[in-house]
Simulated assay, not measured.
Amino acid sequence: MKHKATPWWLSGPALLLFVALLVVPLALTAVLSFNVYDPATGPKAGEFTLEHYAQVFTDSYYHGIFWRTFWISGLVTLICVLVGAPEAYVLSRMRNPWRSVLLLVVLAPLLVSVVVRAFGWSMLLGPEGAVNGLLRLAGIGPVKMLYTETAVIVALVHVMLPFMVIPVWTSLQKLDAGVENAALSLKASHFTTLRRIVLPQVMPGILSGSLIVFGLAASSFAIPGLLGGRRLKMVATVVYDEYLHELNWPLGAAVALVLLVANLIVMLSYNRLVEGRYKKALG
């Protein structure tokens, strides 16, 4: 009996921490989202309503914000896959010290605060920034990039790229280079080798990296808030506005929970789709 209880005793502190820091705040947020809101007095504890969820699901304003959030997150994830997977492949084939140097370059953005990076991109993409300066030299003229979806996408790709490179690189470390060389020795082309040998092996890394990037991009606040401005809103900035500007905490909690559930649905569907194709490719 004591033997069976040992795993529970060992995992108990982590489970308590998980419940205290994640489950309890989520439960309190869920309860808050159903509270009646009075503009004069604020949320009314003990009085519940579905009005906030009805507003989120029926108002076209929130439909547009959720659509913008998810298509930007999807595009950022796609760009990170197209850039990060080849970058990880090159990284895995390099020798030291160049591998260490490139790995440091990939991880360097993680050492800088997201807010600092957002301000850096605002300086680069601003009307008098370096990018517009180069465009003027090329005779193209100034282009409005700051406070646009383009600025948000560029900055999010820069922030999220390491979260794609590292999982793919980790998967490539488990790949035996002899298998790749054997395929090449049997007259398979480099493209066929990448498609039939390398890609199925690194698909778990691409899957995990995609889920991380999509989840972080969909819930990001600093980049959309600083580079999107007041007019280009995403869901996280709407939640912030409802909590701190409008003081409508129940509506902000409802929007946050809808984002969480929608995020989970998209990520689980994507996970099932990619895993199914991965198993089919291996089978």
Score class of each variant (00 low, 15 high):
residue 110 L to M: 13
residue 47 E to D: 10
residue 34 F to D: 03
residue 59 D to R: 11
residue 76 V to G: 07
residue 230 R to Q: 11
residue 165 V to H: 03
residue 109 P to F: 10
residue 45 A to W: 13
residue 64 G to T: 09
residue 221 F to S: 08
residue 46 G to Q: 04
residue 68 R to F: 02
residue 258 V to C: 05
residue 223 I to A: 02
residue 16 L to Y: 12
residue 151 A to D: 05
residue 279 K to W: 04
residue 156 L to E: 14
residue 116 V to H: 00
residue 119 F to Q: 04
residue 17 L to W: 14
residue 155 A to W: 01
residue 88 A to W: 02
residue 42 G to I: 03
residue 95 R to M: 09
residue 220 S to K: 01
residue 176 D to Q: 08
residue 216 L to K: 01
residue 129 G to R: 04
residue 138 A to F: 12
residue 223 I to F: 00
residue 255 V to R: 05
residue 10 L to K: 01
residue 189 S to D: 03
residue 253 A to S: 15
residue 169 W to R: 04
residue 94 M to Y: 09
residue 48 F to D: 00
residue 256 A to H: 01
residue 46 G to Y: 03
residue 12 G to Y: 05
residue 159 V to N: 10
residue 206 I to V: 15
residue 76 V to H: 10
residue 63 H to S: 14
residue 230 R to W: 03
residue 240 Y to T: 01
residue 190 H to E: 12
residue 103 L to W: 07
residue 225 G to M: 08
residue 132 N to K: 11
residue 172 L to W: 12
residue 120 G to K: 06
residue 277 R to T: 08
residue 146 L to H: 07
residue 227 L to I: 07
residue 144 K to V: 12
residue 262 A to P: 12
residue 31 V to G: 08
residue 238 V to L: 07
residue 61 Y to G: 10
residue 51 E to L: 13
residue 262 A to M: 15
residue 142 P to G: 08
residue 242 E to L: 15
residue 96 N to V: 08
residue 139 G to F: 02
residue 51 E to R: 14
residue 227 L to F: 03
residue 79 I to H: 01
residue 2 K to M: 11
residue 267 M to P: 11
residue 237 T to Q: 05
residue 180 E to G: 00
residue 169 W to I: 02
residue 239 V to P: 00
residue 238 V to R: 03
residue 148 T to N: 06
residue 140 I to N: 02
residue 34 F to M: 09
residue 228 G to D: 09
residue 129 G to Q: 05
residue 151 A to G: 11
residue 117 R to S: 04
residue 276 G to E: 10
residue 131 V to R: 03
residue 163 F to L: 14
residue 253 A to G: 09
residue 30 A to G: 12
residue 170 T to E: 08
residue 11 S to D: 01
residue 215 G to L: 13
residue 150 T to E: 12
residue 75 L to T: 09
residue 107 L to R: 06
residue 12 G to H: 03
residue 229 G to K: 02
residue 238 V to Q: 09
residue 210 S to Y: 05
residue 138 A to H: 11
residue 65 I to R: 04
residue 6 T to P: 07
residue 282 L to N: 13
residue 99 R to G: 13
residue 69 T to V: 06
residue 231 R to Q: 14
residue 61 Y to E: 10
residue 85 A to F: 05
residue 220 S to I: 00
residue 13 P to Q: 01
residue 187 K to H: 12
residue 2 K to A: 14
residue 233 K to R: 14
residue 196 R to D: 08
residue 131 V to H: 02
residue 27 A to E: 06
residue 198 V to T: 13
residue 160 M to F: 13
residue 220 S to G: 06
residue 169 W to N: 13
residue 139 G to N: 07
residue 222 A to F: 00
residue 264 L to V: 13
residue 119 F to T: 06
residue 18 F to G: 05
residue 52 H to R: 11
